[in-house]
Amino acid sequence: MKRAIRREELREIVPLADSTIYELEKKGDFPARFYLTPRTVAWDLDEVQDWLAKRKAAGAELQGDEHKPDVRQRKARPVKQALHVVNG
């Protein structure tokens, strides 16, 4: 039996901001929403659960430091360089 979920339930299942989900959908990296009415959207629960399972499997491979983003390359709020003081 297929089941559709609305935004409130999606937020409980997927702990991401609405804007992040929207961006992932635009890129094709998250299950697409569909309209139940002109003002009501929903997601297919099976597709969301499959997406989570794939992310979980991929996450096991991404545990090392080599997969972390380089925060020094941020465009907004770049990380300030620390001053290293040597006591001698």
Rank of each mutant, 00 (worst) to 15 (best):
N87H: 10
Q81S: 07
P15G: 02
E23G: 10
G64M: 04
G28W: 01
I5A: 04
D46G: 01
K27T: 03
K2R: 09
E23M: 10
E8Q: 06
L36P: 00
M1C: 05
V14D: 00
L16D: 02
E61A: 03
L45H: 08
T40Y: 00
Q81M: 06
D70R: 02
L52K: 04
R39N: 07
D50W: 03
H67C: 06
A42T: 10
D50H: 04
R3Q: 02
A4T: 08
A82H: 09
A42P: 12
P15V: 03
R6T: 12
K80E: 14
I21Y: 00
I13P: 12
R11G: 05
E25I: 03
W43G: 01
D46N: 02
A57Q: 06
E47L: 09
Y22R: 14
W51H: 01
T20I: 05
H67T: 12
P15K: 04
Q49G: 06
A60K: 13
R77D: 15
D18G: 05
V86R: 13
R77T: 14
T20M: 05
E9S: 11
Q63R: 13
E47S: 08
R55Y: 08
A60H: 07
Q63V: 08
Q81K: 14
K2G: 05
Q63G: 11
E25H: 05
G64F: 13
G59T: 07
L62I: 11
K75H: 15
R3L: 01
K75L: 14
K68I: 14
T40V: 10
V79L: 14
Q73K: 15
Q73V: 14
R7H: 04
M1A: 09
G59Q: 07
A76G: 11
A32C: 07
V14W: 00
E9F: 13
F30K: 01
T40R: 02
A82S: 08
L24P: 07
A76C: 10
G28S: 00
A32L: 12
R7V: 08
P78A: 01
A32T: 09
D65M: 13
V48W: 00
H84L: 13
R55G: 06
A4K: 05
G59V: 06
A82Y: 10
L62D: 11
P78M: 01
Q81V: 06
L52I: 06
R77G: 13
I21T: 03
V48K: 01
G59L: 05
L83K: 10
Q81W: 09
P38V: 05
Y22D: 12
K56L: 08
K80W: 10
V86C: 12
E66T: 11
H84S: 13
S19F: 03
R33Q: 07
K75C: 12
K56T: 12
K54D: 06
K26I: 09
R77E: 15
A76D: 14
K68R: 15
G88Q: 14
Q49L: 15
A42H: 12
D70P: 02
R33W: 09
L62A: 15
A76L: 15
W51N: 00
Y35R: 10
R7S: 08
E66Q: 13
D46H: 02
K26Y: 07
G64I: 05
R39V: 03
T37G: 04
L36I: 10
K27Y: 06
K75D: 14
S19W: 04
Y35H: 07
F30L: 00
L45Y: 09
H84A: 12
D46R: 00
K68E: 15
K75S: 15
K26V: 09
K26P: 12
L83G: 04
A82K: 10
A60N: 09
G59H: 07
